[in-house]
Design a protein around this nucleic acid. Structure first.
Length: 712
RNA sequence: GCGCGGUUAGCUCAGUUGGUAGAGCAUCCCCUUGACGUGGGGAGGGUCAGAGGUUCAAGUCCUCUACCGCGUACCA
């Protein structure tokens, strides 16, 4: 049985108890004020800043979010100890589409009503109530992870200041001709009743039927399609100019009656047509296909919209009008058969576009929408387009993306980038700052003077406001001191799954609006999967709640389990074994402290330091510091773990039982080990640190490990 | 189609610039009850997916192949 020395707290008689420690320690940190860089001691001069990727207010943080918080907290704590004036700025994201859809579902479940039934105002009020409730829970979870965020600067992507930022950005881009309104083929989500951007599409491979047929008996060319119902809107057949089979028909126009629709089909020649596919002839439906719309533009073809916003036939054709697309398809195929027009029915695999949020099959429709022009040369940016600005920021090395392989993906995405559809027909979000009156249009931050102005009913894509985050969170468009000190931010840490959604858009916005990069380094982490290797997904309800893990194992153990052995950008699995291992480690450290504290600390220099062990420790420190500087946190964590357990405890400490002269060295190693470990396991290290200080003789002033100097 | 990643001990995964294979868990043996809600010492276990190449030396660099996963384009 251990003899309790008079200076030792009773708690050291028991194993480490995270539950009893963590809340207390977090409160200690919060009341110290040091999360706010303004309160840091004088030695913290050079600024260092990170903005927290704002989690969606839709739900609770799952372990993927926890990983993000942990990596950033490790970086931030390390930098703070290194003496930087460190700011980590928190916030939450209103997540327009996600939240809108979520609340719509809840309302439908509870009241069997749609948002159209209850109206815009009532709906928004309900969403805001939902958001307010969720934000509290989210914040609590982030704190539970030990995040040393400056809550004094907390922001929300839909609060007043951010709203001003969004409207200002919109106006600046509109004035520069980068935002325009036009009718284009867009991705329509019939279930969500809104447009979505290309990035919000999820492709699913499915088997589909490919029908080969003629429009009518006297039409000379057969075509193939998987969607006969859209053929009601065909205005041309396109063939390859070199295709000998069809050359004689090029330029001819045929009048046909196709399933009740009177069509004028012109035969045009275009290089885009693949002679090998199907019959080598392409039925052109300008209203429901991007490619066909481009063809129509080139050949001056009219466009007939066949399908409406509810994915139903809108043409006034008896028997077809009002039918859903799939039903209409069956009817038309049946008609083709009875007319003897169907030539072939085959199967092909095709990628079908579905909406990320609702799972609905995307219907390409022509619609009047707002877009960001990514190709227009910008005068005040040296004639570069947004595309070029995004490209150059990374290509020039101003922004470094880690791991490097994602730079390739980034460039690849830019090469394939089309104009960005930014208007959404949902209600929750930043309303488009445009007002109309008769033929007048007004774009501005505030409603224009005068009567009869009507604001655009649409809202903006969530990522429009998220794109401003690094600077809107710091107060832009106001020229704040924070903006001056902390922008560009140093590191943007986020999951690789939103590199296009978010990282690219932030670069776009910052480059145009500020003429500067938003961050110097992008560090991308991978997905956290469950033990079976399955992707954790919010929509599947496959949440792993970090709170239940911290209850069982302690936050420090969870942090280690999430970090160790997980390289940047690679997916990881969280297992109970791993959590248990680091829970045991916490207890091991606790017992090490107990042992060291059970021995009176000699006055400085009395027993002297074992120079060999001190040198060994310096080498370790150098090594770990090098890893920290190079974002190898997963290796650094493993090294300090191995040292503390298998070198310090197993060997140094064991040997010391036979040599009383080691005592001062033991204290030295323990103190400095706590410092190296603190970014990874902040709670237990801070707790032991406070015991060390309390037991010192003569008593040392209270101090926080959190702002101690990183060893050199 | 194009691209990226993975393939290392029974399981989950590390392995920074090429220099005689590592961790955690699991298995087996021994020891510990005066730091340890357990811990310590030790053992077994890998032709580093396969083939070829560069090199004094390759898990690490190059080429090809296979399987798994992912991204993206096209999709009539």
């Amino acid at each position: 049985m251990l003899l309790l020395r008079d200076h030792m707290d009773e708690k050291f008689l028991k194993p480490y108890n995270p539950g009893a420690t963590e809340d207390k320690i977090y409160r200690l940190w919060e009341t110290s004020g040091f999360f706010n860089p303004d309160n840091l001691p004088k030695r913290h001069r050079e600024p260092f800043s990170i903005v927290l990727p704002p989690p969606n207010v839709t739900g609770i943080l799952h372990v993927g979010g926890a990983l993000m918080v942990v990596i950033e907290d490790i970086i931030v704590r390390y930098k703070r100890m290194r003496g930087f004036k460190t700011l980590w700025l928190p916030g939450t994201d209103h997540a327009a589409i996600a939240t809108n859809t979520r609340v719509e579902k809840i309302i439908y479940k509870e009241e069997k009503k749609t948002r159209y039934d209850i109206g815009r105002e009532v709906f928004i009020a309900k969403v805001e109530k939902f958001v307010a409730e969720n934000r509290g829970a989210l914040k609590h979870q982030i704190k539970q992870m030990g995040a040393s965020l400056d809550w004094d600067r907390e922001a929300f992507t839909l609060d007043k200041k951010r709203s001003l930022a969004v409207k200002t950005a919109f106006k600046m881009m509109y004035d520069a001709g980068l935002i325009y309104r036009g009718t284009r083929i867009i991705n329509w989500d019939p279930r969500g009743q809104t447009t979505i951007s290309d990035d919000e599409i999820v492709y699913e491979e499915r088997l589909a039927k490919l029908f080969t047929f003629k429009y009518s008996k006297d039409f000379p060319i057969a075509i193939s399609t998987t969607r006969p119902e859209t053929k009601l809107g065909d205005t041309a057949v396109a063939v390859h100019p070199d295709d000998k089979r069809y050359q004689k028909y090029i330029g001819q126009t045929y009048k046909v009656n196709f399933a009740g629709a009177n069509l004028e089909i012109k035969v045009v020649a275009d290089e885009i047509v693949d002679m090998e596919f199907g019959t080598g002839a392409l039925g052109v439906t300008p209203a429901h296909s991007q490619i066909d719309a481009e063809l129509a533009l080139r050949h001056n073809l009219p466009s007939i919209q066949v399908i409406n916003e509810h994915a139903k036939i809108k043409l006034p054709i008896p028997g077809l009008e009002g039918e859903k697309t799939v039903a209409a398809r069956e009817k038309i195929v049946k008609w083709l058969k009875t007319e003897g027009l169907l030539i072939k029915e085959g199967e092909i695999t095709q990628n079908i576009s579905t909406a990320e949020r609702t799972g609905s099959v995307i219907e390409p429709l022509p619609k009047l929408q707002w877009f960001v022009d990514v190709n227009k040369p910008i005068e005040k940016r040296g004639g570069k387009s947004l595309k070029q600005l995004m490209h150059d920021a990374v290509a020039s090395g101003q922004i470094k993306i880690l791991p490097e392989r994602f730079e390739k993906e980034y460039f690849n995405w830019i090469n394939n980038l089309h104009d960005w559809n930014i208007s959404r027909q949902i209600w929750y979000g930043h309303r488009i700052p445009v007002w109309y009156r008769n033929n007048e249009i007004y774009v501005g931050v505030d409603r224009p003077d005068g009567l009869d102005w009507e604001q655009d009913p649409d809202t903006l894509d969530t990522w429009f406001s998220s794109g401003l985050w690094t600077f809107s969170a710091l107060g832009w468009p106001e020229r704040t001191r924070d903006l001056e000190i902390y922008h560009p931010t140093d590191i943007l840490e986020t999951g690789y799954d939103i590199i296009f959604f978010w990282v690219a858009r932030m670069i776009l916005m910052s480059e145009f609006l500020l003429g500067d990069i938003p961050f110097k380094t992008v560090y991308l982490h991978g997905l956290v999967r469950n033990e079976k290797g399955k992707k954790l997904s919010k929509s599947l309800g496959d949440n792993v709640d970090p709170l239940s893990i911290t209850d069982k194992y302690g936050t420090d153990a969870l942090r280690m389990a999430l970090i160790v052995g997980v390289g940047p950008g690679s997916d990881s699995k969280l297992s109970n074994d791993k959590l248990k291992a680091y829970k045991n480690f916490a207890n091991k450290l606790w017992n090490i402290a107990r042992f060291v504290l059970s021995q009176e600390r000699p006055a400085d220099g009395k027993t002297g330091l074992d120079q060999e062990l001190v040198n060994e420790f310096s080498a370790l420190t150098k090594d770990i510091t090098n890893d920290m500087e190079n974002y190898r946190f997963y290796i650094a964590a493993e090294k300090i773990y191995a040292y503390i357990w298998h070198r310090f405890a197993d060997e140094i400490l064991e040997e010391s039982k036979k040599m009383s002269s080691r005592r001062e060295t033991l204290y030295y190693i323990l103190e400095n080990s706590l410092k190296l470990l603190h970014p990874f396991m902040p709670f237990i290290t801070e707790e032991i640190w406070s015991e060390l200080k309390a037991s010192a003789k003569p008593p040392e002033p209270r101090s926080l490990l959190m702002i101690e100097t990183w060893p050199s």
